[in-house]
Design a protein around this nucleic acid. Structure first.
Lengths: 254, 254
DNA sequence: CCAAAAGTGTTTCAGATACACCCATGG
DNA sequence: CCATGGGTGTATCTGAAACACTTTTGG
Protein backbone atom coordinates (compact mmCIF):
# COMPACT_ATOMS: atom_id res chain seq x y z
CA UNK A 1 0.00 0.00 0.00
CA UNK A 2 1.37 3.39 -1.02
CA UNK A 3 0.44 5.12 2.21
CA UNK A 4 2.37 2.61 4.27
CA UNK A 5 5.46 3.24 2.18
CA UNK A 6 5.08 6.98 2.63
CA UNK A 7 4.66 6.50 6.33
CA UNK A 8 7.78 4.38 6.55
CA UNK A 9 9.73 7.02 4.66
CA UNK A 10 8.40 9.73 6.90
CA UNK A 11 9.46 7.87 10.02
CA UNK A 12 12.87 7.26 8.51
CA UNK A 13 13.32 10.93 7.81
CA UNK A 14 12.22 11.81 11.31
CA UNK A 15 14.72 9.30 12.67
CA UNK A 16 17.52 10.92 10.76
CA UNK A 17 16.72 14.62 10.89
CA UNK A 18 14.80 15.14 14.07
CA UNK A 19 15.18 14.99 17.80
CA UNK A 20 13.65 11.75 18.99
CA UNK A 21 11.28 11.64 21.91
CA UNK A 22 10.31 15.27 21.55
CA UNK A 23 7.51 16.73 19.45
CA UNK A 24 5.37 19.81 19.02
CA UNK A 25 1.60 19.99 19.14
CA UNK A 26 -0.26 23.07 17.99
CA UNK A 27 -3.63 24.30 19.09
CA UNK A 28 -4.73 26.67 16.34
CA UNK A 29 -7.58 28.90 17.39
CA UNK A 30 -9.80 30.73 14.96
CA UNK A 31 -12.98 32.72 15.43
CA UNK A 32 -15.97 32.37 13.16
CA UNK A 33 -19.72 32.22 13.40
CA UNK A 34 -19.44 33.59 16.94
CA UNK A 35 -17.59 30.53 18.01
CA UNK A 36 -14.06 29.77 18.92
CA UNK A 37 -12.73 27.11 16.61
CA UNK A 38 -9.79 24.74 16.67
CA UNK A 39 -8.13 23.35 13.59
CA UNK A 40 -8.02 19.56 13.62
CA UNK A 41 -6.69 16.90 11.29
CA UNK A 42 -8.20 13.58 10.36
CA UNK A 43 -5.54 10.93 9.92
CA UNK A 44 -5.39 9.07 6.69
CA UNK A 45 -7.75 6.17 6.28
CA UNK A 46 -9.23 6.66 9.70
CA UNK A 47 -11.96 8.57 11.48
CA UNK A 48 -9.54 9.76 14.13
CA UNK A 49 -8.92 13.44 14.73
CA UNK A 50 -5.96 15.11 16.35
CA UNK A 51 -3.98 18.31 16.61
CA UNK A 52 -1.47 19.28 13.98
CA UNK A 53 1.97 18.51 15.20
CA UNK A 54 5.40 17.46 14.14
CA UNK A 55 8.99 16.98 15.01
CA UNK A 56 11.90 19.32 15.51
CA UNK A 57 14.98 19.22 13.30
CA UNK A 58 18.16 18.64 15.20
CA UNK A 59 19.47 22.15 14.65
CA UNK A 60 16.18 23.98 14.51
CA UNK A 61 14.85 26.40 17.07
CA UNK A 62 11.71 24.98 18.65
CA UNK A 63 9.82 28.21 17.99
CA UNK A 64 10.78 28.02 14.33
CA UNK A 65 9.71 24.40 14.19
CA UNK A 66 6.31 25.34 15.55
CA UNK A 67 5.99 28.06 12.94
CA UNK A 68 6.99 25.66 10.21
CA UNK A 69 4.38 23.15 11.31
CA UNK A 70 1.72 25.82 11.40
CA UNK A 71 2.61 27.21 8.03
CA UNK A 72 2.28 23.77 6.50
CA UNK A 73 -1.22 23.62 7.87
CA UNK A 74 -2.61 27.10 7.53
CA UNK A 75 -0.50 28.81 4.90
CA UNK A 76 -0.05 31.70 7.30
CA UNK A 77 3.45 32.59 8.29
CA UNK A 78 2.98 35.66 10.38
CA UNK A 79 0.81 34.77 13.29
CA UNK A 80 0.50 34.91 17.00
CA UNK A 81 2.19 31.84 18.26
CA UNK A 82 3.04 31.04 21.82
CA UNK A 83 4.50 28.18 23.72
CA UNK A 84 2.25 27.40 26.64
CA UNK A 85 3.23 24.12 28.25
CA UNK A 86 5.36 21.05 27.81
CA UNK A 87 3.56 17.77 28.29
CA UNK A 88 5.75 15.11 29.78
CA UNK A 89 3.64 12.63 31.68
CA UNK A 90 5.20 9.20 31.84
CA UNK A 91 2.16 7.73 30.13
CA UNK A 92 0.54 10.27 27.87
CA UNK A 93 -1.55 7.73 26.02
CA UNK A 94 -1.81 4.08 25.16
CA UNK A 95 0.73 3.49 22.40
CA UNK A 96 -0.75 0.27 21.20
CA UNK A 97 -4.23 1.68 20.99
CA UNK A 98 -2.98 4.64 18.98
CA UNK A 99 -0.99 2.44 16.60
CA UNK A 100 -4.09 0.41 16.00
CA UNK A 101 -6.34 3.39 15.47
CA UNK A 102 -3.93 4.93 13.00
CA UNK A 103 -3.06 1.69 11.21
CA UNK A 104 0.56 2.35 11.96
CA UNK A 105 3.18 -0.29 11.39
CA UNK A 106 4.67 -1.87 14.48
CA UNK A 107 7.20 0.59 15.85
CA UNK A 108 8.38 -1.51 18.73
CA UNK A 109 11.59 -2.49 16.99
CA UNK A 110 12.60 1.07 16.16
CA UNK A 111 14.77 3.33 18.24
CA UNK A 112 11.69 5.31 19.13
CA UNK A 113 11.25 5.97 22.78
CA UNK A 114 8.30 4.62 24.69
CA UNK A 115 7.08 8.04 25.50
CA UNK A 116 7.22 11.29 23.60
CA UNK A 117 7.42 14.62 25.38
CA UNK A 118 5.45 17.26 23.54
CA UNK A 119 5.80 21.02 23.58
CA UNK A 120 2.44 22.72 23.24
CA UNK A 121 2.00 25.92 21.24
CA UNK A 122 -1.16 27.81 20.65
CA UNK A 123 -1.82 30.09 17.73
CA UNK A 124 -4.46 32.70 17.04
CA UNK A 125 -5.29 33.13 13.40
CA UNK A 126 -7.71 35.09 11.30
CA UNK A 127 -10.14 32.47 10.16
CA UNK A 128 -10.64 34.14 6.80
CA UNK A 129 -6.97 34.02 5.88
CA UNK A 130 -6.56 30.33 6.44
CA UNK A 131 -6.88 27.59 3.89
CA UNK A 132 -6.77 24.42 5.94
CA UNK A 133 -4.67 21.91 4.07
CA UNK A 134 -4.35 18.21 4.66
CA UNK A 135 -0.96 16.67 4.03
CA UNK A 136 0.19 13.21 3.09
CA UNK A 137 -0.43 11.91 6.60
CA UNK A 138 -3.95 13.22 6.78
CA UNK A 139 -7.13 13.08 4.79
CA UNK A 140 -8.88 16.13 6.06
CA UNK A 141 -8.23 19.37 7.91
CA UNK A 142 -11.00 21.50 9.26
CA UNK A 143 -12.26 23.74 12.01
CA UNK A 144 -14.13 22.38 14.98
CA UNK A 145 -16.11 24.26 17.55
CA UNK A 146 -13.97 24.30 20.67
CA UNK A 147 -16.95 23.51 22.89
CA UNK A 148 -17.82 20.51 20.85
CA UNK A 149 -14.71 18.55 20.02
CA UNK A 150 -14.69 14.84 19.30
CA UNK A 151 -12.57 12.46 21.33
CA UNK A 152 -9.10 13.19 20.02
CA UNK A 153 -6.07 11.02 19.58
CA UNK A 154 -3.27 10.90 22.11
CA UNK A 155 -3.80 13.32 25.00
CA UNK A 156 -4.90 16.05 22.64
CA UNK A 157 -8.17 16.83 24.42
CA UNK A 158 -6.14 17.61 27.49
CA UNK A 159 -3.73 19.77 25.50
CA UNK A 160 -6.61 21.80 24.07
CA UNK A 161 -7.99 22.32 27.56
CA UNK A 162 -4.70 23.65 28.85
CA UNK A 163 -4.33 25.88 25.80
CA UNK A 164 -7.80 27.28 26.32
CA UNK A 165 -7.13 27.95 29.95
CA UNK A 166 -3.93 29.74 29.06
CA UNK A 167 -5.73 31.78 26.43
CA UNK A 168 -8.30 32.89 29.01
CA UNK A 169 -5.66 33.94 31.49
CA UNK A 170 -3.79 35.69 28.71
CA UNK A 171 -6.91 37.60 27.77
CA UNK A 172 -7.14 39.21 31.18
CA UNK A 173 -3.59 40.34 30.86
CA UNK A 174 -2.92 41.22 27.27
CA UNK A 175 -5.00 42.32 24.31
CA UNK A 176 -6.23 39.62 22.00
CA UNK A 177 -8.03 39.96 18.74
CA UNK A 178 -5.48 41.27 16.32
CA UNK A 179 -4.86 37.80 14.99
CA UNK A 180 -8.36 36.45 15.38
CA UNK A 181 -10.40 39.08 13.60
CA UNK A 182 -10.25 40.49 10.09
CA UNK A 183 -8.61 43.89 9.72
CA UNK A 184 -11.87 45.76 10.09
CA UNK A 185 -14.44 44.62 12.56
CA UNK A 186 -17.38 45.98 14.53
CA UNK A 187 -17.60 46.47 18.25
CA UNK A 188 -20.21 43.70 18.64
CA UNK A 189 -17.91 41.34 16.75
CA UNK A 190 -15.06 42.14 19.11
CA UNK A 191 -17.36 41.76 22.06
CA UNK A 192 -18.55 38.38 20.89
CA UNK A 193 -14.95 37.28 20.53
CA UNK A 194 -14.31 38.19 24.14
CA UNK A 195 -17.55 36.64 25.28
CA UNK A 196 -16.70 33.46 23.44
CA UNK A 197 -13.25 33.16 24.92
CA UNK A 198 -14.37 34.06 28.42
CA UNK A 199 -17.52 32.03 28.03
CA UNK A 200 -19.78 34.60 29.62
CA UNK A 201 -21.72 37.62 28.47
CA UNK A 202 -20.53 41.17 28.89
CA UNK A 203 -22.39 44.44 29.07
CA UNK A 204 -22.11 46.19 25.71
CA UNK A 205 -21.86 49.69 27.21
CA UNK A 206 -19.09 48.77 29.60
CA UNK A 207 -17.32 46.71 26.99
CA UNK A 208 -17.30 49.49 24.45
CA UNK A 209 -16.16 51.99 27.04
CA UNK A 210 -13.32 49.83 28.19
CA UNK A 211 -12.12 48.82 24.77
CA UNK A 212 -12.08 52.37 23.52
CA UNK A 213 -10.40 53.56 26.69
CA UNK A 214 -7.56 51.12 26.09
CA UNK A 215 -6.64 53.14 23.05
CA UNK A 216 -5.69 50.17 20.94
CA UNK A 217 -8.54 50.42 18.46
CA UNK A 218 -9.68 53.26 16.23
CA UNK A 219 -13.13 53.87 14.90
CA UNK A 220 -13.38 54.37 11.17
CA UNK A 221 -15.92 56.53 9.40
CA UNK A 222 -17.07 53.49 7.50
CA UNK A 223 -19.98 51.43 8.62
CA UNK A 224 -20.95 47.93 7.82
CA UNK A 225 -24.15 47.54 5.88
CA UNK A 226 -26.21 44.50 5.24
CA UNK A 227 -28.54 43.77 8.12
CA UNK A 228 -32.00 44.93 8.86
CA UNK A 229 -30.71 47.09 11.66
CA UNK A 230 -28.59 50.07 12.50
CA UNK A 231 -25.27 49.94 10.67
CA UNK A 232 -22.42 49.34 13.06
CA UNK A 233 -19.21 51.33 12.90
CA UNK A 234 -16.06 49.58 11.80
CA UNK A 235 -12.94 49.60 13.92
CA UNK A 236 -9.41 48.49 13.40
CA UNK A 237 -6.49 47.90 15.71
CA UNK A 238 -3.81 50.50 15.98
CA UNK A 239 -0.92 48.16 15.34
CA UNK A 240 1.66 50.22 17.19
CA UNK A 241 -0.41 50.68 20.33
CA UNK A 242 -1.54 47.07 20.21
CA UNK A 243 2.06 45.93 20.11
CA UNK A 244 2.91 48.14 23.07
CA UNK A 245 -0.02 46.84 25.08
CA UNK A 246 1.11 43.30 24.29
CA UNK A 247 4.54 43.97 25.69
CA UNK A 248 3.48 45.90 28.74
CA UNK A 249 0.51 43.74 29.48
CA UNK A 250 -1.79 45.23 32.07
CA UNK A 251 -5.34 44.87 30.94
CA UNK A 252 -6.84 43.02 33.86
CA UNK A 253 -10.02 42.02 32.08
CA UNK A 254 -11.57 40.16 34.94
CA UNK B 1 41.90 10.86 36.44
CA UNK B 2 39.07 9.54 38.55
CA UNK B 3 36.72 12.38 37.77
CA UNK B 4 37.02 11.77 34.05
CA UNK B 5 36.10 8.15 34.54
CA UNK B 6 33.10 9.12 36.61
CA UNK B 7 32.09 11.59 33.97
CA UNK B 8 32.36 8.98 31.22
CA UNK B 9 30.24 6.61 33.24
CA UNK B 10 27.70 9.27 33.88
CA UNK B 11 27.39 10.06 30.20
CA UNK B 12 27.10 6.39 29.41
CA UNK B 13 24.27 6.00 31.87
CA UNK B 14 22.53 9.04 30.46
CA UNK B 15 22.88 7.59 26.98
CA UNK B 16 21.24 4.40 28.05
CA UNK B 17 18.58 5.48 30.48
CA UNK B 18 17.61 8.95 29.42
CA UNK B 19 15.97 10.83 26.61
CA UNK B 20 18.69 12.43 24.55
CA UNK B 21 18.51 16.03 23.50
CA UNK B 22 16.17 16.96 26.32
CA UNK B 23 17.06 18.11 29.80
CA UNK B 24 15.68 19.90 32.83
CA UNK B 25 17.06 23.02 34.47
CA UNK B 26 15.87 24.14 37.87
CA UNK B 27 15.84 27.62 39.29
CA UNK B 28 15.57 27.14 43.03
CA UNK B 29 14.52 30.28 44.85
CA UNK B 30 15.02 30.81 48.53
CA UNK B 31 14.53 33.84 50.75
CA UNK B 32 17.02 34.86 53.39
CA UNK B 33 18.61 37.99 54.75
CA UNK B 34 15.88 39.99 53.01
CA UNK B 35 17.12 38.85 49.66
CA UNK B 36 15.86 36.46 47.09
CA UNK B 37 18.45 33.76 46.53
CA UNK B 38 19.09 31.19 43.85
CA UNK B 39 20.83 27.89 44.42
CA UNK B 40 23.83 27.43 42.11
CA UNK B 41 26.39 24.72 41.57
CA UNK B 42 30.08 25.02 40.89
CA UNK B 43 31.26 22.36 38.48
CA UNK B 44 34.09 20.13 39.54
CA UNK B 45 37.56 21.50 39.11
CA UNK B 46 36.32 24.77 37.69
CA UNK B 47 35.18 28.19 38.79
CA UNK B 48 32.09 27.94 36.62
CA UNK B 49 28.62 28.18 38.12
CA UNK B 50 25.36 26.93 36.72
CA UNK B 51 21.85 25.82 37.59
CA UNK B 52 21.15 22.36 38.90
CA UNK B 53 19.80 20.23 36.12
CA UNK B 54 19.64 16.76 34.76
CA UNK B 55 18.14 14.34 32.36
CA UNK B 56 14.85 12.55 32.15
CA UNK B 57 14.58 8.78 32.28
CA UNK B 58 12.89 7.28 29.29
CA UNK B 59 9.78 6.27 31.16
CA UNK B 60 9.76 8.99 33.76
CA UNK B 61 7.28 11.84 34.00
CA UNK B 62 9.04 15.14 33.41
CA UNK B 63 7.53 16.59 36.59
CA UNK B 64 8.85 13.66 38.56
CA UNK B 65 12.26 14.04 36.98
CA UNK B 66 12.36 17.67 38.06
CA UNK B 67 11.42 16.68 41.59
CA UNK B 68 14.09 14.00 41.62
CA UNK B 69 16.73 16.48 40.50
CA UNK B 70 15.68 18.95 43.15
CA UNK B 71 15.64 16.41 45.90
CA UNK B 72 19.18 15.40 45.06
CA UNK B 73 20.18 18.98 45.53
CA UNK B 74 18.14 20.27 48.41
CA UNK B 75 17.02 17.23 50.31
CA UNK B 76 13.48 18.56 50.19
CA UNK B 77 10.89 16.43 48.55
CA UNK B 78 7.73 18.35 49.15
CA UNK B 79 8.10 21.71 47.55
CA UNK B 80 6.52 24.16 45.22
CA UNK B 81 7.73 23.25 41.79
CA UNK B 82 6.48 24.58 38.54
CA UNK B 83 7.34 24.24 34.92
CA UNK B 84 7.64 27.69 33.42
CA UNK B 85 9.18 27.51 29.96
CA UNK B 86 10.93 25.22 27.54
CA UNK B 87 14.10 26.60 26.06
CA UNK B 88 14.67 25.45 22.52
CA UNK B 89 16.74 28.02 20.67
CA UNK B 90 18.75 26.51 17.86
CA UNK B 91 21.93 27.79 19.47
CA UNK B 92 21.55 28.01 23.21
CA UNK B 93 25.27 28.34 23.87
CA UNK B 94 28.66 27.64 22.42
CA UNK B 95 29.24 23.93 22.87
CA UNK B 96 32.95 24.05 22.42
CA UNK B 97 33.38 26.89 24.87
CA UNK B 98 31.35 25.00 27.45
CA UNK B 99 33.28 21.78 26.96
CA UNK B 100 36.48 23.68 27.48
CA UNK B 101 35.28 25.49 30.55
CA UNK B 102 34.11 22.26 32.13
CA UNK B 103 37.09 20.16 31.07
CA UNK B 104 34.72 17.77 29.43
CA UNK B 105 35.96 15.04 27.14
CA UNK B 106 35.26 15.51 23.47
CA UNK B 107 31.64 14.57 22.90
CA UNK B 108 31.58 15.10 19.19
CA UNK B 109 31.78 11.41 18.43
CA UNK B 110 28.87 10.50 20.66
CA UNK B 111 25.27 10.20 19.65
CA UNK B 112 24.59 13.40 21.52
CA UNK B 113 22.68 15.98 19.60
CA UNK B 114 24.19 19.33 18.75
CA UNK B 115 21.60 21.13 20.75
CA UNK B 116 19.75 20.24 23.88
CA UNK B 117 16.24 21.48 24.54
CA UNK B 118 15.73 22.24 28.20
CA UNK B 119 12.57 22.36 30.24
CA UNK B 120 12.77 25.04 32.92
CA UNK B 121 11.25 24.55 36.37
CA UNK B 122 11.32 26.93 39.24
CA UNK B 123 11.02 25.97 42.86
CA UNK B 124 10.33 27.94 46.00
CA UNK B 125 11.89 26.51 49.10
CA UNK B 126 12.23 27.45 52.73
CA UNK B 127 15.84 28.47 53.00
CA UNK B 128 16.15 27.06 56.48
CA UNK B 129 15.11 23.57 55.49
CA UNK B 130 17.66 23.16 52.75
CA UNK B 131 21.07 21.62 53.02
CA UNK B 132 22.70 22.42 49.72
CA UNK B 133 24.61 19.36 48.61
CA UNK B 134 27.21 19.07 45.89
CA UNK B 135 27.28 15.81 43.97
CA UNK B 136 29.97 13.98 42.07
CA UNK B 137 29.77 16.40 39.18
CA UNK B 138 30.12 19.48 41.31
CA UNK B 139 32.42 20.85 43.95
CA UNK B 140 30.15 23.32 45.63
CA UNK B 141 26.51 24.21 45.99
CA UNK B 142 25.37 27.45 47.51
CA UNK B 143 22.92 30.32 47.50
CA UNK B 144 23.51 33.44 45.45
CA UNK B 145 21.73 36.74 45.65
CA UNK B 146 19.46 36.86 42.62
CA UNK B 147 20.39 40.46 41.93
CA UNK B 148 24.04 39.66 41.89
CA UNK B 149 24.67 36.47 39.98
CA UNK B 150 27.95 35.66 38.29
CA UNK B 151 28.09 34.89 34.58
CA UNK B 152 26.62 31.42 34.43
CA UNK B 153 27.27 28.50 32.16
CA UNK B 154 25.11 27.73 29.15
CA UNK B 155 22.15 30.12 28.83
CA UNK B 156 21.46 29.89 32.53
CA UNK B 157 21.44 33.63 33.17
CA UNK B 158 18.64 33.89 30.66
CA UNK B 159 16.77 31.01 32.26
CA UNK B 160 16.94 32.68 35.67
CA UNK B 161 15.60 35.91 34.17
CA UNK B 162 12.61 34.16 32.66
CA UNK B 163 11.99 32.30 35.91
CA UNK B 164 12.09 35.53 37.87
CA UNK B 165 9.70 37.22 35.48
CA UNK B 166 7.32 34.28 35.77
CA UNK B 167 7.58 34.38 39.55
CA UNK B 168 6.63 38.07 39.54
CA UNK B 169 3.62 37.51 37.33
CA UNK B 170 2.65 34.55 39.46
CA UNK B 171 2.80 36.69 42.58
CA UNK B 172 0.14 39.05 41.28
CA UNK B 173 -2.09 36.12 40.61
CA UNK B 174 -1.53 33.58 43.33
CA UNK B 175 -0.28 33.61 46.90
CA UNK B 176 3.39 32.98 47.45
CA UNK B 177 5.26 32.54 50.65
CA UNK B 178 4.20 29.21 51.99
CA UNK B 179 7.30 27.59 50.59
CA UNK B 180 9.67 30.51 51.04
CA UNK B 181 9.15 31.36 54.68
CA UNK B 182 9.46 29.33 57.85
CA UNK B 183 6.25 28.15 59.44
CA UNK B 184 5.92 31.18 61.66
CA UNK B 185 6.81 34.59 60.38
CA UNK B 186 6.07 38.24 61.07
CA UNK B 187 4.16 40.64 58.87
CA UNK B 188 7.27 42.69 58.09
CA UNK B 189 9.04 39.52 57.02
CA UNK B 190 6.23 38.65 54.67
CA UNK B 191 6.22 42.18 53.37
CA UNK B 192 9.94 42.12 52.71
CA UNK B 193 9.50 38.90 50.78
CA UNK B 194 6.95 40.58 48.55
CA UNK B 195 9.05 43.68 48.22
CA UNK B 196 12.05 41.62 47.27
CA UNK B 197 10.24 39.67 44.60
CA UNK B 198 8.47 42.70 43.20
CA UNK B 199 11.58 44.81 43.61
CA UNK B 200 9.74 47.81 45.00
CA UNK B 201 8.60 49.01 48.38
CA UNK B 202 5.07 48.66 49.65
CA UNK B 203 3.12 50.60 52.21
CA UNK B 204 3.03 48.60 55.45
CA UNK B 205 -0.52 49.66 56.35
CA UNK B 206 -1.95 48.70 52.99
CA UNK B 207 0.09 45.53 52.86
CA UNK B 208 -1.05 44.33 56.24
CA UNK B 209 -4.65 45.19 55.45
CA UNK B 210 -4.58 43.33 52.17
CA UNK B 211 -2.78 40.27 53.44
CA UNK B 212 -5.12 39.86 56.37
CA UNK B 213 -8.13 40.46 54.17
CA UNK B 214 -7.08 37.59 51.93
CA UNK B 215 -7.75 35.28 54.83
CA UNK B 216 -4.85 32.98 54.13
CA UNK B 217 -2.83 33.85 57.22
CA UNK B 218 -3.68 33.76 60.89
CA UNK B 219 -2.17 35.82 63.65
CA UNK B 220 -0.85 33.91 66.64
CA UNK B 221 -0.74 35.15 70.21
CA UNK B 222 2.99 34.68 70.21
CA UNK B 223 5.34 37.49 69.47
CA UNK B 224 8.91 37.46 68.34
CA UNK B 225 11.37 38.91 70.84
CA UNK B 226 14.94 39.85 70.42
CA UNK B 227 15.30 43.32 68.95
CA UNK B 228 15.42 46.71 70.56
CA UNK B 229 11.98 47.47 69.27
CA UNK B 230 8.34 46.58 69.54
CA UNK B 231 7.81 42.82 69.36
CA UNK B 232 6.06 41.83 66.18
CA UNK B 233 3.24 39.32 66.11
CA UNK B 234 3.83 35.96 64.51
CA UNK B 235 1.62 34.67 61.72
CA UNK B 236 1.27 31.42 59.92
CA UNK B 237 -0.45 30.35 56.75
CA UNK B 238 -3.75 28.60 56.94
CA UNK B 239 -2.80 25.68 54.78
CA UNK B 240 -6.31 24.88 53.62
CA UNK B 241 -7.16 28.45 52.62
CA UNK B 242 -3.75 28.91 51.05
CA UNK B 243 -4.29 25.84 48.91
CA UNK B 244 -7.68 27.10 47.81
CA UNK B 245 -6.30 30.50 46.90
CA UNK B 246 -3.59 28.78 44.88
CA UNK B 247 -6.14 26.91 42.87
CA UNK B 248 -8.56 29.73 42.34
CA UNK B 249 -5.93 32.32 41.83
CA UNK B 250 -7.27 35.85 41.91
CA UNK B 251 -5.05 38.01 44.03
CA UNK B 252 -4.19 40.74 41.58
CA UNK B 253 -1.32 42.16 43.58
CA UNK B 254 -0.41 44.85 41.14
C1' DC C 1 15.84 58.01 77.66
C1' DC C 2 16.80 56.98 73.11
C1' DA C 3 17.06 54.46 68.82
C1' DA C 4 14.87 51.13 66.08
C1' DA C 5 11.22 48.94 64.10
C1' DA C 6 6.13 47.55 64.58
C1' DG C 7 1.47 48.57 64.47
C1' DT C 8 -2.57 50.87 62.94
C1' DG C 9 -7.25 54.05 60.53
C1' DT C 10 -9.15 57.40 57.39
C1' DT C 11 -9.64 59.84 53.18
C1' DT C 12 -9.37 59.99 48.33
C1' DC C 13 -9.57 58.39 43.74
C1' DA C 14 -10.00 55.30 39.88
C1' DG C 15 -12.02 51.79 37.78
C1' DA C 16 -15.76 48.14 37.64
C1' DT C 17 -20.49 47.28 37.59
C1' DA C 18 -25.30 47.86 37.01
C1' DC C 19 -28.75 49.47 34.39
C1' DA C 20 -32.62 51.08 29.86
C1' DC C 21 -33.80 53.62 26.14
C1' DC C 22 -33.59 55.40 21.43
C1' DC C 23 -31.75 54.85 16.64
C1' DA C 24 -30.86 53.16 12.01
C1' DT C 25 -31.69 49.84 8.58
C1' DG C 26 -33.75 46.31 5.33
C1' DG C 27 -37.50 43.78 4.38
C1' DC D 1 -44.15 49.82 9.95
C1' DC D 2 -41.84 46.58 12.31
C1' DA D 3 -38.30 43.50 13.71
C1' DT D 4 -33.60 43.32 14.54
C1' DG D 5 -29.49 44.51 16.44
C1' DG D 6 -26.43 48.87 17.37
C1' DG D 7 -25.21 52.67 20.03
C1' DT D 8 -24.74 55.29 24.16
C1' DG D 9 -24.52 57.91 29.70
C1' DT D 10 -25.03 58.00 34.62
C1' DA D 11 -25.09 56.57 39.35
C1' DT D 12 -23.16 53.48 42.58
C1' DC D 13 -19.91 50.61 44.69
C1' DT D 14 -15.65 48.41 45.63
C1' DG D 15 -11.01 48.15 46.08
C1' DA D 16 -6.32 50.52 45.64
C1' DA D 17 -3.44 54.15 47.05
C1' DA D 18 -1.85 57.85 49.80
C1' DC D 19 -0.68 59.28 54.08
C1' DA D 20 1.84 59.97 59.85
C1' DC D 21 1.80 59.14 64.36
C1' DT D 22 2.05 56.24 68.57
C1' DT D 23 3.78 52.04 70.86
C1' DT D 24 7.03 48.70 72.40
C1' DT D 25 11.42 47.02 73.36
C1' DG D 26 16.50 46.43 74.50
C1' DG D 27 20.44 48.72 75.39
Amino acid sequence: MDYKKQLAEFFKEVDERCILGLSIDCVIFGFYDNQLKVLLLRWKQTEEWGLPGGFIYKKESVDVAAQRILEERTGINELFLQQFHTFGEDVRYNRQEISQKLNWPDLSTRRWPDRTVSIGYFALVDFSKVTPAADFLTDECRWWDVENLPALLFDHNHIVEVALKTLRVQLSWQPIGYNLLPEKFTMPELQRLYETILNRSLDPRNFSKKMRALGIIERLEEQRRGGAFKSPYLFRFNKEKYRKALQEGNLAFS
